[in-house]
Nucleic acid binder design. Structure first.
Length: 197
DNA sequence: CATAGGATCGCCT
DNA sequence: GGCGATCCTATGT
């Protein structure tokens, strides 16, 4: 394959939960001034638009922060959480439908030295390095200023992997940190790649 | 304008 | 397992 990038059809799909599941095993790349970094996506969460109490777009709310969720699929939605962490989401579906997939964790593949510098800590295989959405963004250099940026450009993109992930290795469960969402907090919208044993 | 709280993390005990 | 960091955002007056 010459072009391994996800195509527009992937980002336009109307089932964000399926999109979240299918992003497991894909490779997230960034190329900023420090160089090229990439990691295997191993954990995601779906945020299912206006009817999902856990979503920033619940009830059709549109604000300066979240309006990029309403863009045509294939852009980044990045926002600051707890004043510290820049959380990276992939916007999906057609314009006007605010679906997004939070990328929660990855395993570093390329540019580990750059990531170590950004994280200010060494990468030790087997130990958590970018095991959460905040540290993932930090390792890849993604910040809130990238919110709204295309995922088809030269700075942030996602590629298919040669790696085939068996369906039974993808574990579904409730999302993290969304207790405020009532019964929607129980939805199995979180996907995680089970560790090989 | 004031204020409460958050799709987290890492260090502390 | 507990908690402080840290600041933007949303909301209400």
């Amino acid at each position: 394959m010459v072009d391994k990038r996800l195509d527009t059809d992937f980002y336009l799909q109307d089932d964000v939960v399926t999109a979240a599941r299918n992003l497991i095993g894909k490779v997230l790349h960034t190329h900023f001034t420090e160089g090229h970094t990439a990691g295997l996506i191993v954990e995601t969460e779906a945020y299912a638009g206006v009817n999902d109490r856990a979503s920033h777009a619940f009830g059709g709310k549109i604000t300066a922060r979240n309006h990029v969720m309403y863009h045509t699929g294939g852009v980044a939605y990045v926002y600051l959480c707890y004043g510290i962490h820049h959380l990276f989401n992939v916007v999906t579906n057609v314009q006007g439908v605010p679906h997004a997939v939070l990328i929660r964790a990855m395993e570093p593949l390329h540019g580990v030295g750059i990531m170590e510098k950004r994280r200010n800590r060494p990468f030790v295989p087997g130990k958590a390095f970018s095991g959460g959405p905040g540290t993932l963004s930090q390792a890849l250099g993604i910040k809130t200023l990238h919110s709204g940026e295309s995922l088809m450009g030269q700075e942030i993109w996602i590629e298919n992997s040669e790696l085939k992930i068996a369906a039974e290795r993808i574990i579904a469960g409730p999302r993290i940190g969304v207790d405020y969402a009532g019964e929607d907090a129980l939805l199995p919208y979180r996907f995680k790649l089970d560790k090989m044993s």
